[in-house]
Amino acid sequence: MNLLNISGSPHVHSDESTKKIMWRVNLALVPALIVATVFFGVNALLVSLISVVSCVLFQWLIEKYILKQKPTIWDGSAVVTGLLLAFNVPATAQMLWIVVIGALVAIGIGKMSFGGLGKNPFNPAIVGRIFLLISFPVQMTTWPVPGFTMSFDAATGATPLGAFKEGALPADVTLWDAFLGHIGGSMGEISAIAILIGAIYLLCRKIITWHIPVAFIGTAFVFSAILWLINPETYMDPVMTIFTGGIMLGACFMATDMVTSPMAKSGQLIFGFGCGLLTIIIRNWGAYPEGVSFAILIMNSVTPLLNCWCKPKRFAE
């Protein structure tokens, strides 16, 4: 017979694992990937593929040759980073090589330099995206026009947010377009419905809780509604605000990243509130038309403080 195993209690485990969580997040991102492929064609698939492969590859290389530890690429976390990075860039042909640089920054600087999964203070995909946005401003803001196309050289146009920043919202963009995803933008953020499907799956699987997305989107909605009521000419209407740009993707997938968001529910509400507020501030008064990544990045840096301040309610108090 085998030796008896001895350990302290408990002697059972729920069978939850980091690996399962990460692959479920990947599954939740698939609807958005499908919509992106439908509207932006092969480019979207290619950019995603290259992004994912390079993220996984960089993680493997760093773990194997620099950190000299057992590579953990199968836990799926590099795939999540790769997909999210791809979702945050325009699906154009020139992104095919730029996204590799983004992957290197996301994995190398954003994640592995802090010690790997679980130790990074900032969401790696956002670190990668912001690096690209600052380094390649032209390429990162050249948006392909959505349409059912198989061509590699799609026509380019503006995002609703970009257009609004320049002057006014293009008249042909309807709320329905924004909901379905028939608008310009980064490949993963265009379709609210695809993102919501993924988010509902994550909620059912208890991988995310409602606190961050609701606080994020709610704050953005209320704050932009106040501004819109004050002056509907200068400010975008609140419904359009939350359905365009990266708010949906950011609130459901980026801000809810376990590693970089607060652990207590109260902390998560404050975190979401901060993200929503900062997003609208940057959109309306900042230099960039979109502020979701910056908002999340800033709130990521506040997370340790929120973890200190916001404690779960003690049973015995």
Binding site: K119, M258, M263, P312, F315
Partner: peptide, 25 residues
């Protein structure tokens, strides 16, 4: 069933705190 799975990095999911019946972390 008896063997524990190998330990990996904490991903700060906060699950432990949310299931703690005493509200600890």
């Amino acid at each position: 069933e008896a063997r524990r799975n190998p330990e990996t990095n904490c991903i700060r999911c906060g699950k432990c705190a949310s299931v703690c019946p005493m509200g600890l972390e």
